[in-house]
């Protein structure tokens, strides 16, 4: 009896997936689907939150009031995006506290790109242009992902994110059209961010253990390599427009595939950064842990006050 029921639930689930019907929180779902989602959505949320740090690093040094306001609102958006995503993951029965603990303990991952340092103002341009550009390529398909709350969160994220890439490109344009020192700053930042950005699409398809199942369940819509290729094809002309040199000697237009051939990512570096050996892994997590721990008394005080107030109100009503 039990097995028949299970099977028919699973069939219904698969049918919904096949028919592009969104899965909603209370629907039955395979445990593995739930797990995959929690892992992916929380990882995504953590990336937004940790991602605030490298860019936040330049808020107080932004070179004009306009840039300062734009950067601050961009980093604030990232906090908002993290919040939308934590909320989506919470619908699967995992608390935000749990997810944050997993981030702090190192159990949960976040995008490795944020383990690289922001060393000059041009990095803020490069992050907006390249990193947000890559993020958008990853994220737009997620607006159609099979899990409803995730898809809806991603619609909000993508809608708000559209200005992020443009502001990055605009910074790069100002620098590239500016003084030689600025152009040099831009090229130097580009050199540092290009390869880590290509790593953002994840390991090669044949080494990506989760891709196949995620594609089948329509959590993921394109493979890592597909997205990486698209990104290169999109960015190379933009770099040319800016007058920047792509730091890849193997980069070449391939007429036959109507796309660029490009050099191989340094996968050893990639796996090392994932494992915690990037230049800023420790700084990033330490900063997050510090904020969380130093905020503990604030969160407790607010709860304590809310409880006192509720008790007083209850007492007043009892009178």
């Amino acid at each position: 009896m039990e097995t028949i029921v299970e099977k028919s639930l699973e069939e219904q689930f698969e049918e919904k997936i096949a028919n592009e019907i969104r899965i909603e929180p209370k629907d039955w779902m395979p445990e593995q689907y739930r797990k995959t989602l929690v892992r992916q959505i929380s990882q995504h949320a953590h990336s937004e939150i940790v991602g605030m740090l490298p860019e936040g690093n330049w808020i107080t040094r932004a070179p004009s009031l306009k840039r300062k306001a734009i950067l601050l609102s961009k980093v604030q958006d990232e906090a908002g995006h993290g919040l939308y995503l934590y909320s989506a993951a919470e619908t699967l029965g995992t608390s935000r506290d749990q997810m944050i603990n997993d981030l702090h303990s190192g159990k949960a991952k976040y995008s490795s790109i944020f383990n690289y340092p922001t060393l000059s103002w041009a990095d803020i341009g490069a992050i907006g242009w390249l990193v947000d550009g890559a993020a958008i390529m990853n994220q737009v398909p997620l607006c159609r992902t099979s899990y409803g709350p995730y898809a809806r969160a991603m619609v909000r994220v993508c809608k708000e994110e559209s200005f992020h890439q443009r502001q990055g490109f605009e910074i790069m344009m100002s620098l590239c059209n500016g003084a030689p020192a600025q152009k040099q700053m831009a090229q130097e930042a580009f050199n540092r961010w290009w390869w880590p950005t290509l790593m953002m699409f994840g390991p090669k398809d044949e080494e990506s253990p989760n891709t196949e199942q995620s594609m089948r369940w329509k959590i993921k819509r394109f493979t890592n390599d597909e997205l990486r290729q698209r990104f290169v094809d999109m960015m190379v002309p933009q770099a040319e427009f800016l007058g920047l040199t792509v730091p890849d000697k193997d980069l070449k237009w391939n007429e036959a595939k109507n796309g660029y051939d490009f050099g191989d990512v340094d996968w050893e570096e990639f796996w090392n950064v994932v494992k915690g050996n990037g230049p800023c892994n420790k700084d990033r997590i330490n900063a997050r842990v510090k904020a969380h721990e130093e905020g503990a008394w604030v969160r407790e005080a607010a709860l304590a006050h809310a409880q006192k107030r509720a008790q007083r109100e209850a007492a007043d009503q009892a009178k």
Partner: peptide
Amino acid sequence: SEWCGHGPILEQDLAMANIAL
């Protein structure tokens, strides 16, 4: 704005950034 990314909880991080903006 120095608080941005370091607030006691995400929701208040957003609030402080709003005021700074």
